[in-house]
């Protein structure tokens, strides 16, 4: 019964059928990537600090570094990545249909996404929460003062649902104005159409820093109304590829924890007495990469390309970057944060 209704509906769009009719090879992403000589990486259409292309088309950001580290680990060249910019509503289809190999695109891990989209959540690369931004001149101090007001949001995000929950829980009757493109949502907020703008707090910081005419005229309110663990997703059913993404990310955390940096990685590899460092970098007779289908220098190359997690964080979104986010929850577990890598051994 369910099958037949589905089939009937599916019959309505043969176009879709063609789209999804591509090769459904589970477990073969690594082979495909190697044969192609390039990783195809789904990123946002432009969110400063996370993934943004400069005027020469060169991508950078915390999410982009995941792609670069992967490319370095695989091909010894962080440039061997093709970036596919995806708006929020496009991203999952792009990953499902095989258009991209991995999706580091400030994407929240949720049960629905993990369990029903045919995707798997790898490792969190930014612990976030949803916040609100308002013009300073409104003198608003808390999101709870937004009763009956309009709030701009981007569709295809967890944001819409959180906003509805928050509005209901606090009896605020907030009116969302929903746009499918980031620029449209930004433009509407900055034009004054909405009293507030809501999305991940990191996204707000980035938009405030890069898109506002004068960042000082806008304030990110202290309220965080949700948990938004952001990280790369991959297609489900390809455990090898899943493991590679996961462990390259853990490797970057482990490197920070043990003091391995972009600058000292060669020297550490040659002279460190710490067996953890040796395993991470493939020094001596250690070869952790082999278990993943890579070679022993996988993490040495990745760290040379992008540095450890802390370096990547500071360079892209940290206090000295334009986005200026505190390390907060994204500090290492032994420094008061939540970042905790499984042991590389």
């Amino acid at each position: 019964m369910k099958f037949s209704t589905m089939r009937l509906a599916a019959a309505a769009f043969t176009g879709m059928g063609v789209l999804l009719a591509g090769p459904a090879q589970a477990g073969k992403t690594l082979d495909a990537v190697k044969a192609r000589g390039q990783i195809v990486c789904g990123v946002s259409t432009g969110l400063a600090g996370f993934s943004q292309a400069d005027s020469n088309g060169k991508w950078s950001g915390l999410d982009v570094d995941v792609c670069r580290a992967l490319a370095a680990a695989l091909f010894n060249d962080p440039e061997k990545v093709k970036y596919v910019p995806l708006s929020a509503p496009q991203r999952f289809t792009a990953l499902q249909s095989g258009e991209v190999d991995v999706l580091p695109r400030n994407t929240t891990f949720t049960l629905t996404r993990d369990a029903s989209l045919g995707l798997s959540a790898t490792v969190v690369n930014y612990y976030d929460g949803q916040g609100f931004m308002v013009p300073v001149k409104t003198k608003l101090k808390s999101a709870k003062q937004l009763k009956g007001q309009t709030v701009c949001v981007q569709s295809g995000t967890t944001t819409e649902k959180n906003l509805a929950d928050f509005s209901k829980a606090n009896n605020l009757n907030i009116k969302p104005v929903v746009f499918d493109k980031l620029e449209a949502a930004n433009a509407a907020y900055f034009s004054g159409r909405c009293v507030a703008y809501t999305t991940d707090a990191s996204g707000l910081a980035s938009i405030r820093a890069k898109e506002a005419k004068d960042p000082k005229e806008h304030l990110v309110l202290p309220d965080l109304i949700s948990k938004e663990p952001l990280g790369p997703m991959v297609r489900r059913g390809d455990d090898e590829w899943f493991a590679i993404v996961k462990w390259v990310m853990y490797g970057m955390l482990e490197a920070e924890e043990y003091g391995v940096t972009q600058a000292n990685v060669d020297q550490m590899k040659a002279s460190s007495a710490d067996p953890v460092v040796m395993r991470l970098l493939g020094g001596g007779n250690e070869d952790t990469g082999k278990l993943l289908g890579l070679d022993k220098d996988w993490m040495t190359r990745a760290i040379k390309a992008v540095g450890n997690y802390g370096e990547s964080f500071e360079r892209n979104v940290g206090a000295k970057s334009a986005v200026n986010l505190p390390r907060g929850l994204n500090n290492l577990w032994n420094k008061g944060g939540l970042m905790y890598a499984y042991p590389i051994r």
Binding site: K2, F3, R7, T14, V18, A24, A115, S116, L163, R236
Partner: peptide
């Protein structure tokens, strides 16, 4: 084509069906 789509979706663990229509939407409309 329809069968192919459904098969591929199943293989990839993408759930399908119209049952969601009865579930709470969870978002507001302006």
């Amino acid at each position: 084509l329809a069968g192919n789509t459904m098969h591929n979706m199943q293989v990839r663990g993408i759930q399908s069906g119209f049952d969601f229509l009865a579930r709470p939407a969870g978002f507001d409309i302006g």
